[in-house]
Design a binder for these strands. Structure first.
Lengths: 244, 244
DNA sequence: TAGTGGTCTAGACCACACT
DNA sequence: GTGTGGTCTAGACCACTAA
């Protein structure tokens, strides 16, 4: 096997990450075909001059992505089936950019609102607290894809319309020093309202894909609650599940 | 803190799992409230008589579930927001049982079919190979919830109608020694056909939630491909995402 | 019996955040 | 400076699988 890796031992990139990146690349490129066996942990570690826990961690990263399967007494094998893009904590803006479409935004509403019971619960703030309310239509290559409603806690009051037209909401939050860490999503479907049909340029009473999400930053605090609906002919969700 | 744990050091349950279970329970019960800080890794390890890597692994399990957030130099804190049930690689049957509804099945079709191009690709078998085709209506408390189509590879030909009426498909597969390990899902929405409307007892042209899934066993082989549609008023998907 | 992954130890050094 | 999590080492023993 030609996996001679030039490991950067003094750089800031963890060794396990360098190894896992290399393995993932080998799988995605077909160098390690579906069903093939990976070199065992101990041998791989010796060949790379790494301890076994480090090699294990590298392999575990790929297992968690659903590309490898491990069996005790057997070995580690590449999962069959075409590989789809990995699922991450991204925004619609990122998704569209990654698929080489040009995103744009039509800002419908940007105003301060006091939190009702539902919003207060989702954002873990007191009912009646001030929040920032945003309603947008997101477009890809000038075709409307989604109608998005967001509520943000008080500290984000002050976000400008120009920010939201030029960038995605997550970009704006990142530029204010917020790092998203955890998101809890709920995905469903329903019929469109007449207003949504007009905004999304679809027939009345069409089927819509819906997603509610609460996102938390790296301190565990809720920083965004959103209710979104998508044109199902233009957007869907991919999820990879791995049993532990 | 009252986290005196009786660790079973000779039993088959890993120590890190015993610890992570105890921590998760403390969070879900409110013993560790949202925003509170967890005892640091080294101290927790000393108190429990465990090495630091073992304690780290226990904590990491909970972080991966989205209940804890770690920050270098700061500590480990409980994420805010009400905790929803964890997302796992489960079947609709399991979901319904867990919510204390009584599942049942109306078997529409059970027959052998040769794989067309799409099925062959999803199951990683040759086009024209024999496969088992199943079409069912799943009900909860005698209300129809979903119409499910499944294709299984050749070796499962021989599954009996009685198996599918009495148990979920995943139960049947487990009883034949198959362990699901990885699943790749695609979630979307569309309008119902007239036949689906009748089967699900909903209005014509209703919105449906759809899910396509390919599942792989612990050897990485595709064992099931399914196309399902759900009544959106009775079923939806929950997903927790954790940024790494 | 030989080989594999699963778990665990007892340290070490580093990067980062707060005081 | 002090305390935190992030990474890494060099072993050890065990459980499971296959020949």
């Amino acid at each position: 096997m030609g996996m001679f890796m030039d490991l950067e031992r003094s750089g800031p990139i963890p060794l396990y990450f360098q190894v896992s990146q290399r393995i993932e690349k080998a799988i995605l490129s077909g160098e390690l075909p579906a069903g093939s066996r990976l070199e065992n942990e101990v041998a791989l570690g010796q060949r790379l001059g790494l301890s076994r826990p480090t090699v294990r961690r590298a392999i575990q990263e790929i297992v968690d992505k659903g590309l490898l399967v491990r069996r005790r007494g057997i070995g580690t094998q590449v999962v069959h089936g075409q590989v789809t893009r990995k699922v991450e904590l991204t925004s619609l803006y990122d998704d569209l950019t990654n698929t080489h479409k040009v995103p744009s935004t039509h800002l419908l509403t940007l105003e301060n609102r006091v939190a009702d019971a539902k919003t207060a619960e989702r954002l873990s703030v007191a009912e009646g607290s001030p929040t920032l309310y945003i309603r947008r239509v997101r477009l890809a290559d000038n075709v409307p894809v989604a109608v998005m409603e967001n509520w943000l806690p008080e500290e984000f009051i002050g976000i400008e319309p120009s920010d939201l037209v030029a960038h995605g909401l997550y970009q704006v939050l990142r530029s204010r020093g917020v790092t998203m860490r955890v998101a809890r999503q709920h995905i469903g479907a329903r019929k469109s309202t007449n207003e949504e049909s007009a905004l999304l340029e679809i027939e009345k009473n069409s089927a819509l894909l819906t997603m509610d999400r609460t996102a938390f930053d790296n301190s565990g605090r809720a920083v965004e609650f959103g209710q979104h609906c998508y044109r199902p002919d233009l957007y869907s969700f991919e999820v990879t599940l791995v049993e532990k």
